[in-house]
Amino acid sequence: MTQDKDARRPNVSLAERARRIRRLAVRMGEVQGQGYVGQALGIADVLAVSYFHALRHRPDDPYWEGRDRFNLSIGHYAIALYAALIEAGIIPDEELETYGGDDSRLPMSGMAAYTPGMEITGGSLGQGLSVSVGMALALKRKGSGSRVFNLMSDGELDEGSTWEAAMSAAHHGLDNLVCIVDVNNQQADGPSTKMLGFEPLLPKWEAFGWYAQRVDGNDVGAVTEAFDRAMAHEGPRPRVVICDTRMCKGVPFLEARDITHFIRVEPDEWAKALAILEAAGPL
């Protein structure tokens, strides 16, 4: 399994990119024998659309000033973002073997100082959107056309700071900010909606002044269209794409399992999951 020589090769479909991101995430999970693989499998389609359709970036220059910023507010989704960064050619494929190890550039929770392409230090949930507001304001101040994408989880909707930032983004008319909310309905203690009810989500974001859409986050076509609409929207409003995703998507025997926040995978199941993903492609 070697990395594409040209990660930007245009003739690879977004669905195929998503499949490869899933495969890379599972391989990292196998390295550690654990990890937030369920979330990674769920968000892979959104990351594929982000890195291979929406974002402007240069794999050989991850700090290029003209890039779009992708802020991972959910630090524990790092395994998913590493997979996307590897697929995008920003991190070498072989580095995957170091995931979560001592002195690795790929720690279990994402931190900006550790990983090229990791824009912020997430993990203390509910901070990313506030930082994104500051970055979006700063980019406007610089006259930059770069945009800020903030990936957050539905659990982060519980945090009051999320709504401080949501109000602020609308107040300042941040049309260069795109928030992606991964609604997988799973938090540490159980289903997100049972932890702290956040529905109805779409009208809530609209009421906060955002251009809001809600899509099936595992439908690559639907996500792509939603991102396109978000970009094409001309109103002076921040944009949010609420993505309903399925934990463990793409590996049916894990999807069927009693889903938990930290999915348990038996040692012999990694190879099985990988085989399923291998057999599913290329797409």
């Binding site: 901070q127 959107l129 506030s130 500051g134 304001l137």
Partner: peptide, 10 residues
């Protein structure tokens, strides 16, 4: 958080 964002952008 926003101050951090400004600092990240120089």
């Amino acid at each position: 958080g926003a101050a951090a964002g400004f600092a990240r952008e120089g």
